[in-house]
């Protein structure tokens, strides 16, 4: 097996909560609480979970847009969790990000050409003429007319803007790209185009993706392995077919049962697992297993002991006392 490209161990990101006149720290929101996983070179790891479970925070911490509270992030074996200033800046070209909102992720006052050229200019890699050629190549690579370089973001549709965002992420030839819900804001027909573009680029350039989404069907399409997150923790991590074929964690089972099946007869008769209640606050998570307050199979043990992040016989990893 090849060495992992990105390797995360016990990663925590707590956001402090301040209150009062003197801004005393009164608590913390545990957005990401003890994640451990590897991303192999060339694969796509899907990261799914409901809103507010810490998916986007995970992506941003790995890219070091936040300073992690605890834990280690290794990129090609080198520790990057504690990097600062210039050393961190030199790491940046290796890892890039594609954003969720194609409206907000492009500066409305810059032309497409200067938006895509910014990473190159910032790292001082190419001369002016080479840079312009590179921008044309990138626009071509993401399926846009190279003549668009002179236009402004508001002249484009959502799907086109997402392509511009992808071109910017590719400008520095990264190895690893965090895709933070890149298709959530797009029409279904455009979603397919963008996902296919991402797959083509992965094949051509040997990219590694962390694909964050709440669209389970899309993750099934694009991901090699899938991690399911709940309230700042990963509850199950398995190969795609294993996870979708036989989910082991009760939360994964509930999530998958919510995906509609495109056949009215089956859909009318099949069993749905409906979770009761709301997600507990990440500022004050439940003791023991974090899912126990909504788990259909919870036992007294779940209250007392935190489930171990263990490996099952078939290679998948689950955090549940009763998963077999």
């Amino acid at each position: 097996m090849t060495a992992p490209l990105v390797s995360v161990d016990d990663l925590c990101m707590f956001f402090p909560v301040y209150r009062g006149v003197i801004r005393r720290k009164v608590g913390e929101v545990r957005a990401v609480d003890g994640l451990s996983f590897d991303i192999r070179r060339g694969e796509t790891l899907g990261l799914v979970g409901e809103s507010g479970c810490g998916k986007s925070t995970t992506g941003r911490v790995i890219l070091r847009l936040y300073d992690p509270t605890r834990g280690s992030i290794r990129f090609e074996g080198a520790e990057i969790a504690g990097l600062k200033g210039g050393a961190l800046r030199r790491m940046r070209p290796r890892m890039q990000m594609i954003f969720q909102d194609p409206q907000a992720c492009l500066n409305p006052r810059m032309t497409i050409g200067s938006i895509i050229a910014e990473p190159i200019r910032e790292h001082g890699l190419l001369s002016r003429a080479e840079r312009e050629d590179r921008v044309q190549d990138l626009l071509d690579a993401v399926g846009l007319n190279p003549k668009f370089a002179n236009r402004y973001p508001h002249e484009f549709s959502g799907g086109q803007r997402q392509r511009i965002g992808i071109a910017r992420a590719l400008a520095l030839d990264p190895d690893f790209i965090v895709c933070d819900e890149p298709i959530a804001a797009l029409d279904v027909s455009i979603q397919a185009q963008v996902v296919n573009l991402l797959e083509d680029l992965q094949e051509k350039l040997g990219l590694t993706y962390l694909f964050i989404s709440h669209d389970l069907s899309m993750v099934r399409h694009i991901a090699d392995r899938v991690a399911v997150m709940y309230l700042g923790r990963i509850v199950e991590l398995a190969d795609r077919d294993q996870l979708y074929g036989s989910p082991k964690h009760p939360y994964t089972q509930a999530l998958l049962s919510a995906v509609p099946i495109p056949d009215p007869k089956v859909e009318a008769t099949r069993e749905h697992i409906i979770l009761k209640g709301d997600v507990p606050s990440p500022a004050n998570p439940p003791s023991g297993c974090r899912f126990r307050t909504r788990c259909p199979v919870a036992q007294p043990l779940c209250d007392e002991a935190e489930p171990e992040w263990r490996r099952l016989a078939d290679g998948r990893r689950v955090a549940c006392h009763f998963a077999e």
């Binding site: 990000m97 907000a104 500066n107 910014e118 910032e122 790292h123 965002g165 910017r168």
Partner: peptide
């Protein structure tokens, strides 16, 4: 708080450039 500022950070843009290029024009 807009995503293009975050994007500039993820590129490794220095802070004074973020202020001058992304924030001031807006």
């Amino acid at each position: 708080e807009r995503e293009f500022v975050l994007a500039a950070k993820s590129i490794g843009t220095r802070e004074h450039r973020i202020l001058l290029r992304h924030i001031l024009p807006n």
